[in-house]
Nucleic acid binder design. Structure first.
Lengths: 189, 189
DNA sequence: ACCGGACGAAACGCAAGCGTTCCGACGCTC
DNA sequence: GAGCGTCGGAACGCTTGCGTTTCGTCCGGT
């Protein structure tokens, strides 16, 4: 098993996925793109689902932990900046919506993804909220789940769904929006 | 051209779309589901793309205008409630993410969708903001675009991407969050 | 120098689905 | 009641892609 061949196949899979969409992935084209025979592919994975499931797990790994900037607003801005960088990636930006569309139809895939990407994301939102509480910036009743939805949802919607861009000015406004919302969420309850 | 046949084909297309995903739509199955010969289908649409493009335009029509509740908070809550009802629809909730994944790969489809759904959505967000300004609840510098992203993005993310549910309590908190954010957005600029 | 495993390439049988064509049946209009 | 258009159903040739198999080759270990 040559590792270079495995790497070439994995990279080719993501290219094919981004270009054609999940359902239209052809392992024939993947092998050809990788400059590899089909036999080498089937020696590693038994089917399309097996290959996709295993390779998908590499998607969310690069998400670094959020550095502590000292303020809630700084942390939020930093997180949004990281998300923007991720969603700008030409491969990721095409694969993510495809993945989300496929998950309800493919329980095995859904389990692999939810177990990895989303747990990680939730953890990061929780970290930010906890820091805010520890600093005294936030009431302890703030719901990390809602904060997580807002941090992820708005920028995902903006960049992926509507195809709009998110410049620094946009991120700044969004940051202020989110911070104000987090504070207000509890102060009136 | 029997209208009942056209209706049966259209309905069958959406069922097939929701069940299999855009790329895996089979017009053979669509015709069979509709209880119709393939000839009847191809007498109406020249290809899969033609059928999907035309039928897609029926998706966003039902979006009613937002009733004026008298307060910004009431309007926002009403809009979110309507979105929740839409996103709970079993067919819509499956087709929408599939559509968003397919749009970057299919310019013709993208144009049809962006021209209909998104323009309509933007208009509704703008209406709410304008009412808020007219009532004196909002500063006139509020950016309707950002408001639109937040209204649509968070609940879409919550219900479609993460597969979570949005109960009334969640919508109430989200409403407070959004209203607070809208106000704060400008007051500090 | 030899031997075995992984390699690229090509062909296999099979299934699905495209868009087309032909058929006989049914219903409406004149 | 004769004629025309649409209907459902079936088959057509064609392409794509699956997963398998068979080659001959190349490279690394002993």
């Amino acid at each position: 098993m040559q590792p270079t061949v495995t790497a070439a196949l994995t990279r080719a899979l993501f290219e094919e996925w981004a270009a054609r969409g999940y359902a239209a992935i052809s392992l024939e084209r993947v092998a050809k793109t990788a400059g590899v025979g089909k036999a080498a592919l089937y020696r590693r994975w038994s089917s399309k689902l097996a290959m996709v499931s295993e390779c998908s797990e590499q998607l969310g790994i690069e998400l670094a932990t959020i550095p502590d900037t000292g303020t809630l607003e700084g942390d939020v801005r930093k997180l949004l900046g990281g998300l923007r960088r991720l969603l700008r990636h030409p491969i990721v930006s095409r694969i993510l919506p495809d993945l989300h569309a496929e998950m309800p139809r493919n329980p095995e895939l859904a389990q692999a993804i939810r177990g990895r990407l989303q747990t990680e994301r939730r953890r990061r939102a929780a970290t930010i909220v906890e820091r805010g509480i520890a600093r005294g910036e936030l009431d302890e009743r703030v719901d990390p789940e809602l904060v997580n939805d807002i941090l992820g949802g708005v920028i995902y919607w903006r960049m992926i769904v509507t195809g709009g861009q998110a410049d620094s000015r946009y991120l700044d406004r969004l940051t202020r929006f989110v911070v104000a919302g987090i504070r207000e969420q509890v102060s009136r309850e």
